[in-house]
């Protein structure tokens, strides 16, 4: 039996909604999601980076992954929490794409924008093939995430955006194949979180 306090709390939260509790939440979230970028930018401007290529490539890639996972967390959270977080999901995923863009740009800078080198890398090196595919797919989802596109695509939108499950797997594989040590624990932790989030969805359908 759920306690009365819980039920009452629930009712109050629904009445007030999160809007009333925290004002300016979307701009607030925007700044929050932008913070890793701002910190990197200040490090770069202050000359704190020793190897800007690596020290920007890695964190931007990781933030893209973290925000992707965060966007996947919204649906499960909605089942648990008494209020909906769905209206934040798009901003989180678009920020994931933003960090993926930075991640890719630094890689292109590292290749001195020699497209031939990039093409060879994409064809020849599996971790880049996988990462690049994930980027293309995420780009596809980002451009189809406007209100207009959602309306245009109708039922197909949901099907298309299920690609996010494929993307997260590609990103984890990209991360795992890129680290030097195959027993490095970090990609495995992210992988585990991704599996939990995906597994959660399979269970809900039943």
């Amino acid at each position: 039996m759920k306690s009365r306090i819980y039920t009452q709390g629930l009712i109050w939260l629904r009445i007030f909604n999160l809007h009333m509790v925290i004002p300016w939440q979307k701009p607030l979230l925007f700044i929050l999601l932008l913070t890793p970028f701002l910190l990197l930018l200040s490090d770069a401007l202050l000359g704190n980076l020793i190897d800007p290529i690596e020290e920007i490539t890695n964190p931007t890639g990781q933030w893209a992954l973290r925000f992707l996972l965060l966007s996947l967390l919204i649906t499960p959270l909605n089942k648990i929490l008494p209020f909906s977080l769905i209206k934040y999901r798009r901003m989180i995923s678009v920020f994931s794409f933003f960090y993926a863009c930075l991640h890719l740009s630094i890689y292109l800078i590292d290749q001195n924008f020699e497209l031939q080198l990039v093409l060879v890398d994409v064809m020849k090196r599996p971790y880049i093939t996988v990462g690049f595919s994930a980027f293309i797919l995420l780009f596809l989802l980002t451009i189809t995430s406007t209100n207009k596109m959602v309306r245009c695509l109708g039922g197909r939108w949901k099907k298309l955006h299920r690609l996010i499950y494929l993307i997260i797997i590609l990103v984890i594989v990209h991360f795992y194949w890129q680290v030097k040590s195959s027993t490095d624990i970090e990609p495995m932790i992210y992988g585990l979180i991704a599996l939990l989030l995906l597994g959660f969805r399979i269970n809900w359908k039943r």
Partner: peptide, 9 residues
Amino acid sequence: IGGGSFFSP
């Protein structure tokens, strides 16, 4: 390391 500039390492 330490060579070139940000946009052209």
